[in-house]
Structure formats: C-alpha cells, structure tokens
C-alpha cells in the first residue's frame, strides 16, 4: 500500500497524532491507513538538489523495457 504525505499536525504523542490525523485528514473518505512520523525524524533532500539528485536517471533510458525492440514473433514479453 503506497502512502502519500497529506499534511502536518501537532500532538503530544504518537497515539494522539493518529487520532488527530484521522479527524483532520480523512473527513472525505480519503482514509485507508495512517502513518505518523515526528518531523525531527525525517531526513529530506533539498528541493534545490532536484537536478543533481534525479536528473541522472533521465539519461538511462535503457532502464525502461520499451527501450528494447523484441520481434513480434517472440510473443508477449
């Protein structure tokens, strides 16, 4: 199940954080499961580093299966 960041909140402990997250971020049936993490435990890349971090993958098109032409006779692969 892939989780997506939906927002921040304040809570005295993890248990209350889950309760608050339920109240605040699942009022429109968005809820399936909730993860809460203390902000101080997150290590993140800087948005400014987007280029050096992620651009190298752009030049490696051979990582995608469509890079390779497989003859039709071989069938589905």
């Amino acid at each position: 199940m892939s989780h997506r960041h939906v927002g921040s909140l304040h809570a005295p402990d993890a248990e209350m954080a889950v309760k608050n997250a339920r109240d605040v971020y699942t009022r429109r049936n968005e809820g399936v499961s909730i993860w809460v993490v203390e902000a101080r435990h997150i290590t993140a890349t800087a948005p400014g580093d987007k280029g050096p971090m992620f651009e190298p993958s752009e030049s490696k098109v051979y990582r995608h299966p469509t890079f390779f032409d497989i003859p039709e006779e071989v069938g589905h692969m």
């Binding site: 927002g7 909140l9 304040h10 109240d23 009022r27």
Partner: peptide
Amino acid sequence: LAKVQDEAGHGLYLYSSAETLGITR
C-alpha cells in the same frame, strides 16, 4: 457541525504552512 469542523481543519493546514516559515503556531 461538519462545516465548522472543516474550518478547524483549514486553520490547521494554514498554521502548518505558516510554521514552515519559522514561526510557531
């Protein structure tokens, strides 16, 4: 009630984004 609860949520989203600018709620 649901509407007023939404407003509390909206307050939270906005306080949270202001907090990223270096001020606390």
